[in-house]
């Protein structure tokens, strides 16, 4: 079965030499890829570097693309493999030379310019909740973590996740099931506090 959705069309046109189609694909999916990488590593710069690597891989793998599955399945599979590869290499935390510039843009300026500052206690609670969720997600084994990210955040079906992770639907269901039990245990800390 061939998939000829808009992404597949763009990819096929890019494969035929239309460079602008690649840029369109990047624009359409950059946030999606970044979300996955960010949730997997909980690090902005690393997530952005990984997202760029994913699209670079996609760029050079254009000749291997065939519309046998959804374009996003292919893209997620590249993203998953890149994340796992980087996780296994266990390189020290990547820090871009533009990092200080981003700190200025993302952190310092909004604090000065934003007049709608939320109440400090709300900020602390939100931040604490974010940290607890991040910690709970990070505590999961890599396969469970990936299955949760794809299922919970990217809202993919077990079938799609199985295609991305290269395993059976039953295995994916089992991964998500065990991850939910683990997350319930980890997040119990949050319920005890609130």
């Amino acid at each position: 079965m061939d998939y000829f959705d808009e992404d597949a069309q763009l990819m096929l046109r890019f494969k035929d030499g239309e460079e602008s189609c690649f840029e369109q694909l990047v624009e359409r999916h950059k946030q999606r890829v970044f979300n996955l990488a960010y949730r997997f590593f909980s690090d902005y710069q690393q997530a952005e570097d990984i997202s760029q690597q994913v699209f670079i891989k996609l760029y050079y793998a254009k000749h291997t693309y065939t519309p046998k599955a959804k374009f996003t399945t292919w893209l997620y599979a590249i993203c998953r493999n890149t994340c796992l590869k980087i996780l296994r290499v266990k390189t020290p935390k990547m820090l871009s030379i533009d990092y200080s510039k981003q700190l200025e843009e993302k952190d310092v300026l909004p604090q000065i310019a934003d007049t709608k500052i939320p109440r400090p206690d709300t900020v602390i609670l939100d931040k604490e909740r974010q940290e607890i969720i991040k910690a709970a997600l990070d505590s999961l084994p890599e396969n469970q973590k990936m299955a949760v990210i794809l299922n919970r955040y990217e809202e993919l079906s077990y079938e799609e996740i199985a295609g991305i992770m290269g395993c059976s639907q039953k295995a994916v269901k089992s991964l998500v099931h065990r991850a939910r039990l683990n997350l319930k245990e980890k997040l119990a800390v949050f319920y005890e506090k609130t």
Partner: peptide
Amino acid sequence: ELLSTSWQLMLDHSVPRVSENFTADLMKKI
């Protein structure tokens, strides 16, 4: 209840926006 609320709570994991010059940087790298 715990299974349900913990799964719901996971949605609160917000992700920042990717930088505006992401595509330009990427094309430069390529």
